[in-house]
Design a binder for these strands. Structure first.
Lengths: 144, 144
DNA sequence: AGTGAAAATTGGAATAATTCCAATTTAAGA
DNA sequence: TCTTAAATTGGAATTATTCCAATTTTCACT
């Protein structure tokens, strides 16, 4: 009925498609990533999830994340050597990493640009995935 | 006189520009990265460097790499959570990571594409750097 | 050439994200 | 209900990297 419900269903289906089970831990981790799309780390997800399910372990959070990634429900995002962050945006997009605030924003990637990118590959090379990360800063209110 | 010599000079100059010293360790690490542009890890660089200078330590290799990066002589390249790799190519380029062989190739990035990429940022966002990584595979000789 | 201060190197300990593992718990089907 | 495979759990292990304190080197200035 609710939007949340809708997402749970899609989770259950996607898991079933891969022959996996829809456990409470997996649902919770998924809903938590969906609730605030701020690219949390595994530790942050663990912290958020614990209040609703105090018995969950960090290992399980890692396991769930791996499962969600395998089912293409979540993407892992890496900036340099920093802890991996997790992103529920499945559309093709780049990431903007703000050096000053540490925040991460999604930047939609137009189809034509994606196509242009693939064209710069030498013949014989096939890209299954492209990761694009901008690093910089956003003008703050008051900047001029 | 030699090409190698030329590079050493540029190293010394770039270091001096930043008020840093051109030590034998820094020269050697830099020459080693330049000798085979195969994006080695710190451990690999350490192994290659030890034969010419057995007394060098891994900590020094890390220190030298950090220095070279600060002087813009070398770029750090990260693929997912794998160990950082080091790249002496200073021109704007993307990286192609071959899943099958593990090899990394540079892919030159045309100016117009770079410009097009910067245009997708929302107003107010400024990118100081863009990292682009393709993951995929290269057709092998014999593939059809 | 000699000296002193700052910078660089070194080995080893410390850190931290992630993975591994063996034991227990849970779930789904016969 | 029973069986079996899958999932979860806590803690140990791994590993790239950073930190640290002690030593060595370098450079500028006499």
């Amino acid at each position: 009925m609710s939007t949340t419900h809708h997402h749970s269903d899609s989770l259950a289906h996607k898991l079933a498609d891969s022959g996996l089970r829809a456990t409470p831990q997996r649902e919770l981790v998924y809903q938590t990533i969906l609730a605030r799309r701020d690219h949390p780390t595994a530790d942050e997800i663990f912290a958020r999830v614990k209040s609703a399910m105090p018995s969950i372990s960090l290992a399980t959070v890692y396991n769930c994340l791996e499962t969600l990634i395998d089912c293409d429900l979540v993407r892992a995002v890496n900036f340099d050597r920093a802890p991996t962050r997790y992103c529920p945006n499945l559309r093709p997009h780049a990431h903007f990493h703000d050096k000053e605030t540490g925040a991460t924003h999604d930047v939609d990637l137009p189809d034509d640009l994606l196509a242009a990118l693939k064209k710069i590959l030498p013949p014989g090379y096939t890209a299954d995935a492209i990761d694009i990360t901008f690093r910089g800063h956003a003008a703050r209110a008051g900047d001029n």
